[in-house]
């Protein structure tokens, strides 16, 4: 009586579920190439890559957290705070390496404090990281009295340099972070633990995983990524702007969610997030090339994000129904009884 599901419809929904987001990316690329002749040039793609580098790297930070059942709403403020400190470090020492190191150090501290609040003080992630957002923003102001740093020397070169004359440095960093995130998630024991804790923290605990230690490590990685993003953001601005990166955690979470990271925890991939970041970036790029007002752009972006996520979820529900048929036991789809 057990039948394997082999007809065309089954294969299609299987494909949608696994590759739905790539399909959406393909559709957008196709639309872009039709709507504007300059869209599908390597120069433009690289430019978009540079545009999404900061929120993309932050999206990887959020992805690792979301997979582990957490979230961080303070990333934007961390970028501003650590970015300003990093610029001063650079001006004082002349070393780009130290600039990165100082930004990363600040972000890791903030993130570990978030982890502490969530694990030891038992605060909900939303509340703890939102508080950190206020603290960090305030700290930027205290640190620089709200005054931008106008003369930053060569700092901007971190954003304007090209590798092999073709690939902007921010894109190199973005891809580097993507690879690092992918390796961590897929190949390491820590990655497995993060998926487990996010998927079912109680079962992970009952399997011998230290839930709090895993969370600390996840937040530490998030801090590392955020520090890198901070340097790139300030380099891109070529100025030390204390009021930058406002609300960037929202774009980061959007990219992660489009890429398949789910707030129920235990789901998400690095590749998906990279695709998600580019989906958002391409939409913005195409609309700019068509000269559409930024306020209309926001509406369109929001609608397209909803569509992208719904398609992804629908694919997953189809899979649940399919498996249920094979078990001969009807199961309710995730959105609840019809």
């Amino acid at each position: 009586m057990e039948k394997r599901f082999t007809d065309i419809r089954g294969l299609f929904s299987q494909a949608m579920r696994r590759y739905g987001i790539y399909l959406i990316l393909l559709l957008i690329v196709f639309a872009g190439s039709v709507l504007s002749p300059v869209f599908l040039t390597s120069k433009n793609i690289m430019s978009v890559g540079r545009q999404v580098s900061v929120t993309g790297i932050l999206a990887f930070a959020e992805t690792i957290l979301i997979i582990g059942g957490n979230v961080d709403l303070s990333l934007g403020s961390q970028v501003a705070l650590s970015g300003m400190i990093s610029i001063n470090t650079y001006l004082g020492t002349g070393s780009a390496v130290l600039a990165f190191a100082s930004a990363i150090a600040v972000c890791v501290c903030c993130s570990l404090f978030n982890a502490f609040a969530i694990t030891k003080l038992q605060m909900p992630g939303f509340v703890a990281t939102m508080s950190m957002d206020f603290i960090a923003r305030g700290a930027v102001y205290v640190y620089c009295k709200g005054t931008p740093i106008y003369q930053v020397g060569d700092y901007g070169k971190i954003s304007s340099t090209y590798l092999f004359g073709v690939v902007p440095l921010p894109v190199v960093f973005l891809l580097g972070v993507a690879v690092l995130a992918a390796v961590i998630l897929r190949q390491t024991c820590l990655g497995r633990n993060i998926y487990a804790v996010g998927g079912n923290a109680e079962a992970a605990f009952a399997s011998g995983i230290s839930v709090s230690r895993t969370k600390f490590k996840a937040f530490a990685i998030s801090g590392l990524f955020t520090g890198i993003a901070a340097v790139i953001q300030m380099a891109r601005l070529n100025t030390g702007m204390p009021d930058t990166a406002n609300g960037y955690h929202g774009d980061a979470i959007a990219a992660a969610v489009i890429g398949g990271a789910s707030f129920t925890g235990g789901a998400g991939t690095a590749a998906g997030t990279l695709v998600g970041a580019f989906v958002v970036g391409f939409i913005s790029n195409i609309l700019n090339l068509k000269g559409i007002s930024i306020y209309v752009q926001q509406i369109i972006k929001g609608i397209l994000i909803i569509i992208a996520v719904s398609v992804d979820i629908a694919g997953k529900n189809r899979k649940i129904r399919q498996v249920a048929r094979e078990k001969k036991e009807p199961v309710e789809p995730r959105e609840g009884p019809a």
């Binding site: 430019s47 540079r50 545009q51 953001q233 891109r236 601005l237 100025t239 702007m241 009021d243 930058t244 990166a245 913005s284 790029n285 700019n288 090339l289 930024i294």
Partner: peptide, 11 residues
């Protein structure tokens, strides 16, 4: 914001 203007100009 400078960052928003940067994105526009790049495109």
């Amino acid at each position: 914001k400078k960052e928003n203007a940067i994105t526009l100009m790049e495109d």
